[in-house]
Design a protein around this nucleic acid. Structure first.
Length: 572
RNA sequence: CGCGGGGUAGAGCAGCGGUAGCUCACCAGCCUCAUAAGCUGGAGGUCGCGGGUUCAAAUCCCGCCCCCGCAACCA
């Protein structure tokens, strides 16, 4: 496994994402990408903005901009924030790209050729005032069940009864409020997933190592009720990939576009192709990641996503690939996450509740957020963000355990010796014990990272930091120095090497701090410690270093209280 | 009987057949190099409730209660 393809669920374009979105896909994907690069593997890490669909059109209209312009701007905003969170995408693409348009049309054509597309006539609500068909959720009216007036066409929020838009009493457009609605006949393409049910089922059965969350959601959709249902993959919209059968027009489908959920996962492939084009490379550049007949058979493909995305990645997208009967790369492992809650409730994009990525970076550097979010990733159940927990965890782990270690070692050396790695003395039993301990812990850390056990990895890494403090306590160079300065020099030499080791191991979690630590140690050698004893002898006597200013400043009670108040309400 | 996830020390979590663990908070001690940081030890749990299987159950089975999410064209 020397080549790893990593994709993060692609964030929707209509706004800045909150920390719950971040921790469920992009951030753990970045952790894994950085780790694999650190191990010397070839990595392709792909993300993009998901730009099509009704919500994008409405958000653009609200902003008073043409939808393509709106998406371009929002893409730049999201790309900038991702960059500032140090999300190390090889490409952050756009689902509205030419490459995606072509691939999406190509897949649809192949699916049709192979008998996996069906044309279905159906009735949908059309709003004359809005000049468009309305998705169920954009129709409001009085609930026939409980009388609640704000019921939506898909479900009544008040009594939770599932509805059909035609059930509503006095229906109106949620967009304009117009009651000038009519039911119109319209023709759409359906992906015949039901024909692939057995193949999908058998495929999922081979994935015994996947998280329960992933397989249980997939199984539920496969077996619940009438089993896997066919799915409409076209819409009566303007903004999207025009429906075509490969390069050819699709009679009867004029003016329609593919449904976002059809083209969004294909963007994973397209974004890699976008990168090839940007680099002026040919198709071989991206096909070796995506075509098993063109070099991708030895690629390990891992996807990261929140639980709400699982059905599309375990069923719809694989159905698209299988149905094409072409040798596209299927996912090897799906890492899914539960939800992160905010202070007793859900983060909510639509309600503006919680902390959004841009706001987070306004108040603290990305490493603080990365550490907390990853070390509390909602892997086994939903988890919760509270300001108290955030303050305590970050202060303890980053400032006290790691930052202070760097500080005490470098400052001691500067005051007793100099800002060079001191010469003299030899490693003894205590040092041998430490090296053995660190070696075991590094191996454990690696195996947790390989397994994508995010919280366990964070715990193990913290344990490695703690081991340094334990060593200092046991060795007590400040005491040894009084009687045997050479021995103290050897101890500090080891401790300085620990700082470099910590920088390398910690980089996937806290890349900026790692960089600061490496720079302070005056080295650019960030090679992975396959040989821990050797790695701990890398900085030799006389090697110059500097004392970094507080690697992690603490979060004060005043800060925390201020933020708590600032983020208690709803974003404007 | 809709489906799934979860209910383990004050808080947040791990363990998932063999004498109940981790982090934080709390108490005591040690160190004094360091970001009032570090290290060691301690107190604290009838592992949601009730049955059952077993030499042995937090861990397997049955029933019940509670919390969260999902319930397919909203991404």
């Amino acid at each position: 496994m020397n080549r790893v393809l990593i994709t993060s669920a692609i964030p929707y374009i209509n706004g800045i994402k909150h920390l719950g979105n971040l921790v469920g896909s992009q951030l753990p994907a970045d952790l894994y990408a950085r780790y694999n690069r650190g191990r010397g593997r070839e990595v392709m890490f792909i993300c993009a903005t998901d730009e099509h669909g009704t919500p994008a059109e409405l958000a653009a209209a609200k902003a008073g901009k043409p939808v393509d312009e709106f998406c371009s701007e929002m893409h730049e905003v999201q790309a900038d924030i991702a960059n500032r969170f140090r999300l190390s995408f090889d490409n952050f693409g756009r689902s509205s790209s030419v490459q995606n348009r072509k691939l999406t049309q190509h897949f649809a054509g192949k699916l049709a050729d192979n008998g996996y597309i069906e044309e279905v006539s159906e009735k949908q609500v059309y709003s004359n005032a809005d000049g468009r068909f309305l998705p169920d959720r954009y129709i409001e009216g009085e609930c026939p069940n409980c009388g609640y007036d704000g019921a939506r066409g898909d479900q009544c929020e008040n009594c939770t009864k599932q509805l059909d838009p035609t059930d509503l009493i006095n229906p109106r457009s949620a967009i304009s409020g117009s009651t000038d609605l009519e039911v119109r006949e319209t023709k759409h393409l359906y992906l015949r997933q039901s024909k692939l049910k057995d193949a999908l089922d058998a495929w999922i059965d081979t994935k015994a190592d996947w998280p329960v969350l992933t397989t249980s959601i997939a199984k539920k959709w496969l077996h619940d009720g009438d089993g896997l249902q066919d799915r409409g993959i076209t819409r009566d919209l303007k903004w999207g990939v025009p429906v075509k059968r490969g390069d050819a027009d699709w009679p009867g489908m004029e003016g329609k576009v593919f449904y976002v959920w059809f083209d969004a996962p294909i963007e994973y492939i397209a974004a890699t192709a976008e990168l090839a084009d940007e680099k002026g490379e040919g198709s071989a550049f991206w096909e070796r990641w995506w075509r098993t007949d063109k070099g991708a058979e030895d690629v390990r493909y891992v996807q990261f996503m929140g639980k709400d995305n699982v059905p599309f990645h375990t069923l719809s997208f694989p159905a698209t690939i299988m149905g094409s009967k072409e040798p596209w790369k299927l996912v090897d492992y799906i890492k899914s996450f539960n939800y992160l809650n905010y202070d007793g409730g859900q983060f909510s994009t639509s309600k503006g509740r919680g902390i959004f990525m841009d706001q987070a970076l306004e108040i603290l550097p990305s490493d603080y957020w990365r550490w907390w979010l990853l070390s509390h990733a909602p892997e086994n159940s939903d988890s919760e963000f509270t300001w108290e927990n955030f303050q305590v965890s970050v202060n303890k782990d980053l400032s006290d355990v790691l930052g202070n270690f760097v500080s005490r070692v470098t400052k001691f050396c500067r005051s007793k010796f100099s800002e060079d790695v001191p010469a003299g003395g030899e490693y003894g039993e205590v040092e041998a014990a430490l090296i053995a301990d660190i070696t075991a812990k590094v191996r454990a850390y690696e195996s947790h990272m390989e397994a994508m056990d995010v919280r366990k990895s964070a715990q193990e890494l913290r344990g490695i930091w703690v081991a340094g403090n334990e060593y200092l306590q046991a060795a007590a160079p400040w005491t040894v120095y009084k009687t045997d300065p050479d021995q103290a020099a050897a101890q500090i030499r080891l401790a300085l090497n620990l700082i470099r080791l910590y920088a390398v191991l910690s980089a996937p979690f806290i890349p900026d701090a790692s960089k600061v630590m490496l720079e302070a140690m005056g080295t650019t050698d960030d090679s992975w410690p396959d040989d821990v004893p050797a790695a701990l002898g890398l900085l030799k006597e006389g090697h110059a270093f500097t004392v970094p200013e507080n690697v992690f400043a603490k979060i004060s009670d005043e800060d925390r209280e201020g933020w708590q108040e600032r983020f208690a309400g709803i974003r404007d």
